[in-house]
Amino acid sequence: MITQCPRCRSTSISTKDTARKIGALIGTVGGAAQGVTGAMAGAEVGAVIGIMAGPPGVAIGGMAGAILGGLAGAATGCIAGAKLGEVVDERVLDNYRCLNCGLSFSGRHHA
């Protein structure tokens, strides 16, 4: 289905995706914080287990767990935030902009 401007019927349309971008940013930050928090708890367990490998094993295991936890949390949060923002863009905001006449409109109004 081709999106058309409801005013001039042009098919030269772009999307703003404002909520998707903001949702992805917030999700990334929140997910990274949650991931690092969870990783720190895991690092404590890793430190106890790493005692057998000595001090270097404890340090490396703890740092690796925190980094990987942060990255995994950030990626998950980014995806979730972007999906939520996409729904807001489509159902709440005027996400489409006509490149011909400049009208902003929502997906509910395109023909």
Rank of each mutant, 00 (worst) to 15 (best):
G70T: 09
E44R: 11
L71P: 01
G69P: 11
I22W: 14
I67G: 03
A80F: 11
C78H: 06
G85W: 03
P55N: 01
N100Q: 12
V36K: 07
R20I: 06
C98P: 03
G85P: 04
I49V: 15
T37G: 08
R97V: 12
G61H: 11
V58R: 02
I26K: 04
L71V: 11
E86Q: 12
A53Y: 13
A39I: 09
I49E: 09
R97M: 08
C8A: 02
G38A: 13
D94R: 15
G30L: 08
D94M: 11
G38H: 08
M40H: 06
L68V: 12
L99V: 01
T18A: 15
R7P: 03
C8W: 03
G23W: 03
E86L: 08
A47R: 15
F105N: 02
A80M: 11
V45A: 14
A33F: 06
G61I: 09
T28C: 02
V92N: 04
A82R: 06
L99D: 13
I51G: 11
A19Y: 15
A32F: 08
N95D: 13
G23Y: 04
A47V: 13
I79A: 10
R97F: 04
R108L: 06
L93N: 08
A33C: 08
T11Q: 08
V58T: 01
G62N: 06
T15D: 00
L68E: 00
A47N: 13
R20M: 15
G50N: 03
H109W: 02
G77W: 01
G69Y: 09
G102K: 05
G35N: 05
D89W: 01
V36E: 05
D17Q: 15
T15F: 11
M1C: 06
I79Q: 08
I13D: 06
S14Y: 07
N100E: 12
G50A: 05
G38P: 05
A111L: 12
L84C: 06
A74V: 04
A59D: 04
G65T: 13
K83W: 07
I79T: 09
A41F: 14
E90G: 05
S104Y: 14
V87C: 02
S12I: 00
G61E: 09
C101K: 11
H110L: 07
A43L: 07
V45H: 09
C101P: 08
T15G: 12
G107R: 04
A75L: 13
F105S: 03
R108E: 06
T28E: 01
V87W: 10
A24H: 07
V58E: 06
V29R: 03
I79V: 14
T3M: 04
M52I: 13
Y96I: 05
K83Y: 02
A74H: 05
M40T: 14
A43S: 12
A39V: 08
C8Y: 07
I67M: 10
P55T: 09
T76A: 10
A33P: 01
T18R: 15
I22M: 10
C98N: 07
C8H: 06
G81D: 03
R20F: 09
A74Q: 06
A53I: 00
A53D: 10
A53N: 10
I49C: 07
A39M: 15
M40K: 10
D89T: 00
G30K: 04
I2D: 07
